[in-house]
Design a binder for these strands. Sequence first.
DNA 1: ACAAAAGTGTTTTTTTTACACCCATGT
DNA 2: ACATGGGTGTAAAAAAAACACTTTTGT
Lengths: 221, 221
Amino acid sequence: MEIDTHYINQIEIIINIFTIANGKIKILLFRRDEDPFKGYWMLPSNLLMTSETIEECANDTIYEFSGLKDMHLFQCDVMSKIDRLPNDRILANSLIGILDEETITLKREKRKITSEWFDIDTIPKTVYDHNDIIENAIKMLKNKIKNNELLNIFYPSDFTLPELQLVYEQVFNKKLDRRNFRKKMINLKIVEDTGDKNIGKNGRPPKLYRFTNKEQNFLDI
Amino acid sequence: MEIDTHYINQIEIIINIFTIANGKIKILLFRRDEDPFKGYWMLPSNLLMTSETIEECANDTIYEFSGLKDMHLFQCDVMSKIDRLPNDRILANSLIGILDEETITLKREKRKITSEWFDIDTIPKTVYDHNDIIENAIKMLKNKIKNNELLNIFYPSDFTLPELQLVYEQVFNKKLDRRNFRKKMINLKIVEDTGDKNIGKNGRPPKLYRFTNKEQNFLDI
DNA sequence: ACAAAAGTGTTTTTTTTACACCCATGT
DNA sequence: ACATGGGTGTAAAAAAAACACTTTTGT
């Protein structure tokens, strides 16, 4: 195999890892501890090797940064501005990874790199163009949730309706009526009662629901 | 700049060009006239050069294949399976390009490569994994139309409601009632009457409409 | 005058909205 | 017993669906 050097490209795979905790959508960022951009936050990333697929690279990268595995992954965006990094010409392929909270709780182990989950409405300063990448990923994530494509991955088991309502309120950016929200989710058969309750917290224990396996339902004409 | 050869990648930029003609959504394919895959159809593509952005590469490729320019372009997908091509390891980045029919009609010039517009429900056999790429692009295109994100680019000037209805019928894959469709489009202020009519065809001349500049409206909760 | 295609209105059904009190648990 | 948060129903308004005849043009 011979390659014309005009066509040599380096590509970094960058992953936006989201989870939902107590109804708040969060993204996992890592602190950079060397200059330039020391103290800034960053998305996990690695250069793609010739011998691996993007999914393999993404999974390895996530594992290396966080110890987490087997995330639901999908394509998000590609950035190719020549000057997106100051010195090298490196393309960026950003992915979205979805983690359910249970998995995170189980795998909470100590890593060398400082990491933190940030609410998606309070993203800190990040290195290079990572703020643009994050902004774009949040947009795609919200759109997918609006189209009922993703919440069953955030919640593989059960959840309460008040928590789910918080998620929708963030995505649609408006307050929803508790009774109407409930009716809608149940009547449209998006969720179903598991019969269990979430005991242990303050106040009346909420019922637990699960997603039915209905296909995504788009805005119908 | 030094590059570790493990991180050398070749990327081809592949463009799915869509237009709408008489209410039918179409994609532009080119005939391959050399083996392997002689006689099969293909999407226009080119290897990305180190010195250009993806958008530059895509625009040049489109122009080289079709003579068309200044298309609305956006990211679609990235394929990285090691064996997607038989001999080389080349990544594919597929984009979607939107053309309005008027522009096409104006630029209809003769090119050396045989090209043809195919209805999106009768895609012919294509080279390599282009059928997968097209299928994916059609899915994304339909989703965007469902979310009212794209039709104003397909129709920069005016159009008739019967034609628009055909588009929605393809996207939602069901027949719509003429009166209800009309009421909805007009009442939701998605379209507005231009005052003109489309004379010259058989039957009563349809009124011409244009899109209002309302922001996209998603399925609301 | 006939064929072709587009335009139009009303009624019924469904969905959405608005709104306030009671219930189950922990302290 | 009180504080906390969760659950529930009904009526009014809005939106969607069902449905058939008339109008304008070309031939």
